[in-house]
């Protein structure tokens, strides 16, 4: 499974936020059409790593980035790269749902509209994306209502539908279930499992049980360095590093 060309290859990635060296010489591969979990203790740079995969990290003040992130052999940090295009192909599901200040329909239609999809296909796109996010049945009769009227769990599914509407290749999830109640969280997890047949998914989580449930491939990060990476079964059952074993058995972290 992992011998095929990786969808994303991270090469010597270094990130400094202010003077702090947050990511140190990261080298990792993200396999295609799998769920890759980035695990590690709080503050180890998981989120920074995820956000550097679609160049959201550079929005912060005083950020310095060196190294490469190869997306199908194209460096997304190449100076000639169109950032908007990178973020269109590599979507993000944030930790907390942030519906855009518009209706449910317009939230999903936002991406296709700015990318110039024809008006005729829009209703169909919105419908299929809401269906894929398993939200359609709950909102079909109030598509024009403000998105903020939805519950947190529904909002997160709306954000997922919104992300799917721009037809990304890769979906980044930043602890996307941590702000939700257990039932909504499990709903999102199930959705991610069904979506991995069509999308490459990268998931940041501090919840090892969630990583065990979802991940095919795991990257273990510690203080900004990759300690170990590999297929989930190997890493969880038979970690190569004692350090990883200690973390998995919750002796450290």
């Amino acid at each position: 499974m992992h011998n095929i060309a990786p969808h994303l290859s991270i090469r010597n990635l270094n990130v400094w936020l202010d003077a702090q060296h947050v990511l140190k010489d990261i080298a990792a591969d993200i396999p295609r059409r799998c769920i890759t979990a980035i695990v590690g203790p709080s503050g180890c740079g998981k989120t920074t790593l995820l956000r550097s995969l679609n160049r959201l990290v550079e929005l912060g003040p005083n950020v310095r980035i060196t190294g490469k992130v190869l997306f199908d052999d194209t460096d997304i940090y190449h100076p000639g790269m169109d950032v908007a295009e990178v973020r269109t192909r590599i979507g993000l599901l944030a930790q907390k749902p942030f519906p855009l200040p518009m209706s449910i329909y317009d939230n999903v239609a936002y991406g296709p509209r700015i990318h110039g999809t024809a008006r005729t296909g829009l209703d169909q796109t919105v419908h299929s994306c809401l269906q894929a996010a398993q939200l359609w049945d709950e909102v079909a009769d109030r598509l024009k209502a403000p998105a903020t009227e939805l519950s947190a769990g529904q909002q997160q599914r709306l954000c997922l539908a919104r992300a799917l509407a721009v037809k990304p290749d890769i979906l980044l999830c930043d602890e996307s279930t941590s702000a939700l109640d257990p039932i909504s969280a499990r709903g999102i997890e199930d959705l991610l499992l069904t979506l991995k047949t069509d999308y490459t998914i990268v998931l940041v989580t501090h919840d090892l049980d969630q990583a065990r449930r979802l991940a095919d491939y795991v990257i273990f990060l510690w203080l900004g360095e990759v300690i170990e990476q590999g297929p989930a079964a190997d890493l969880f059952e038979n970690p190569a590093q004692d350090f990883t074993r200690a973390y998995l058995e919750r002796e450290i972290g």
Partner: peptide, 22 residues
């Protein structure tokens, strides 16, 4: 909220589109 801007940017919107629409 900064997250609101990021939500839009993460969908591939440009800086100006994000400012205008969001």
């Amino acid at each position: 909220p900064q997250n609101m801007r990021e939500a839009s940017l993460a969908l591939g919107a440009t800086h100006w589109e994000t400012t205008k629409f969001v």
